[in-house]
């Protein structure tokens, strides 16, 4: 979308866990939004993630990924990251590089567009080689 996309995935965004991995992301808007105004999709080494095995964490609170549209009270401050917890996959190897394609959709809640008056969709996709920590 624009230069703020550069902050979506930091170099240390990918971390191995005993049950899979976590991926931290930041929003590419200029202000904080709640999780209800976000949706995302991650592809690792060409493999899409099974969303039924994903949890989203913000402010230390963890929710099933499918709950995101309902989380209008869980705010992600603009300089804070949210973390996807991905389970049920082969754990990643620390020190190895992975290709991450990450799509972040933001539904801007104060800009209504079109005949239906839907929130403006601000979508960004970033692709990055990340070393797993």
């Amino acid at each position: 979308m624009g230069p703020l996309d550069n902050f979506i995935l930091a170099d240390d965004a990918l971390q191995a866990t005993p049950t899979g991995f976590t991926l931290q992301f930041h929003s590419h808007w200029y202000r904080s939004l709640p999780l209800s105004c976000m949706s995302c999709k991650a592809i690792i080494n060409g493999q899409a993630i099974d969303e039924s095995e994903v949890f989203i964490e913000a402010n230390g609170n963890k929710y099933p990924f499918s709950e995101m549209p309902n989380l209008y009270k869980e705010w992600l401050f603009i300089t804070d990251g949210a973390r996807l917890h991905v389970n049920g996959v082969e754990p990643l190897q620390k020190g190895k590089q992975y290709n991450i394609e990450f799509k972040l959709d933001l539904f801007i809640p104060y800009i209504l567009v079109g005949r239906e008056g839907n929130p403006l969709l601000a979508s960004s996709t970033v692709t990055k080689q990340l070393t797993c920590n």
Partner: peptide, 8 residues
């Protein structure tokens, strides 16, 4: 901000 579409 007047976030009228904060709920999905």
């Amino acid at each position: 901000n007047v976030d009228v579409a904060i709920r999905r």
